[in-house]
Amino acid sequence: MNYVDFLLWVRGPAFQIATAIFIFGLSWRLLEILSLSRKPELAVVRERGIAGGFRTIFRRFLPVDDNTFQRSAFIITAGYIFHLGFFIILLLFVPHILFFREFFGFSWPGLPTPVIGIITIMTLLALIALLINRMRHPVLRFLSGFEDYFVWIVTFLPVLTGYMAFHHFFHYPLMLALHILSVELLMIVFPFTKLMHTFTWFISRWYTGSRAAQKGVQV
């Protein structure tokens, strides 16, 4: 198998398998969570809590107060850079948009490539900084296990290989194939790891926000 064959396999059957696992796994996990349901609130509530849940989905994007920000300034800042960077690259890099067009049949405008280049470097640096922080901060070092480092690797690799492929490191078809392969790895492990937070954070925020709103507390 030469590089081009490898690229074709990665883009073809491998991608289909990864997509199937991703979509099936994701649906399964969400079903596992939601099917547990919860008991209705029987106390006389101050408000119904449905809107309150949605308010919390948005309110939690910012730290609740200055003190909270100051105590976790690094992780909040680096975390934002990485998350925003990751999604900007994923959704606004022109070749990615062309790929999505193939898939969904519609497209949207992208960002100029040099801008994506800068954002990619910032994202990589933020990820590295977060990893170092995880290994050095007493609480994070204590809490972190295999999975925490594993999901870091599978998140870091697509960004890194994407950057390398774009700049034609080594052999371009090989680099591109490795980039797509790393994305497939991310998609496959996604439903079985804490990467799931991508799809559950708003469920969590809604539940918490709704219960607090019923009690009359803005959280």
């Binding site: 547990l36 976790s72 975390g79 539940y207």
Partner: peptide, 26 residues
């Protein structure tokens, strides 16, 4: 005791450690 909120909470935690900073025992 485990209900949908709890399942969602555990699925969402990425070990950022911010909760330690809110706890007076830490």
């Amino acid at each position: 005791q485990i209900d949908a909120p709890i399942a969602s909470y555990f699925s969402s935690c990425i070990h950022c450690g911010m909760c330690a900073q809110a706890c007076l025992f830490y």
